[in-house]
């Protein structure tokens, strides 16, 4: 059914993700590390979901599975009903570090995906559009070491967006930025998500960030991660961080994470 639907609408700009009874272990050498324990969740097309949890709990692993960089030890991760077995530029991962290729200029970094898929000729104009979108049009010929942290992360976003991803996987993308840059980037991400209409899955350990951005916040337990809470955030964007409902949600989420009200 889901398969038929996706074939009917090939121009669809977002995909649904189904995580079905996924468990994942790392290792071998007698030392096995279980990071995910029987996770099941569904993310609707175009939805913005935040995964919240203590650091090292396995949130990032779920992103790697969704990106197709790894395959789950057991269970399935499906995109529009089809199992994910390999990376695909429809689903792009943005890391905590910008991980720009330091030997490539900003423009060449953004062009990487098109170049790798042999689409550079037909889609080259798209690079300039995306650079403008992330406000880096004046920095196209700069090398990554000449960029600030925020600019680098914006370039990394542009490198993902130029491929018109249907699913954007964000692994604490603003974790290393200073707090002002972070606020600005959160708003920019929100704008991009609204205009490009992709599905977004954001891993974060910042409760406020999750509440400001996401339609739904899913809380993971400590390793091996299982889902301990799920909160729907109904407030319309732009959200204010002192919104009474959000403050209340923040309190209950922090409590779920094992931290008392007064923090």
């Amino acid at each position: 059914m889901a398969l038929a639907l996706s074939q009917d609408a090939p121009a669809s700009r977002s995909i649904a993700i189904d995580v079905k009874k996924v468990s994942h272990r790392y290792g071998g050498d007698g030392k096995e590390l279980q990071v995910l324990d029987d996770i099941s969740l569904r993310i609707e097309p175009g939805e913005f979901v935040a995964l919240l949890g203590p650091s090292g709990c396995g949130k990032s692993t779920l992103l790697r599975l969704a990106a197709g960089l790894e395959t789950a030890t057991s269970g399935d991760v499906l995109e529009d009903g089809r199992p994910i077995r390999a990376p695909n530029p429809d689903r792009i991962l943005v890391f905590q570090e910008a991980t720009l290729f330091p030997w490539r200029t900003v423009r060449a970094n953004v062009a990487t995906g098109l170049e790798a898929r042999g689409l550079i000729r037909e889609r080259e104009h798209h690079i300039d559009e995306v650079l403008k979108l992330v406000k880096l049009e004046g920095f196209a010929d700069f090398y990554p070491h000449q960029l600030s942290g925020g600019m680098a992360q914006r370039a990394a976003l542009a490198r993902a967006l130029v491929n018109d991803p249907k699913l954007l996987l964000l692994d604490e993308p603003f974790g290393k930025l200073d707090s002002l840059t972070r606020l600005r980037m959160q708003n920019e991400l929100l704008d991009l998500w609204k205009s490009a209409a992709f599905t977004a899955l954001l891993v974060t350990h910042d409760v406020e960030e999750a509440l400001l951005l996401a339609d739904r916040v899913i809380v993971f337990s400590d390793r091996p991660a299982s889902i301990v809470a799920e909160v729907r955030v109904e407030r319309p964007h732009p959200r204010r961080r002192d919104d009474a409902e959000l403050v209340a949600l923040r309190g209950s989420l922090l409590e779920t994470l094992g931290i008392s009200h007064d923090v």
């Binding site: 790697r64 990376p87 530029p89 890391f95 991980t99 290729f101 990487t112 790798a116 491929n163």
Partner: peptide
């Protein structure tokens, strides 16, 4: 850095691209 390979792979790079456009320039 392994992340360079991860990034390139999610962007649709094949092995050839990984060697000539990632591994070699990174090790230059």
């Amino acid at each position: 850095n392994r992340s360079y390979y991860d990034v390139a792979r999610t962007l649709g790079a094949d092995n050839r691209f990984l060697i000539f456009k990632v591994a070699i320039p990174a090790s230059l």
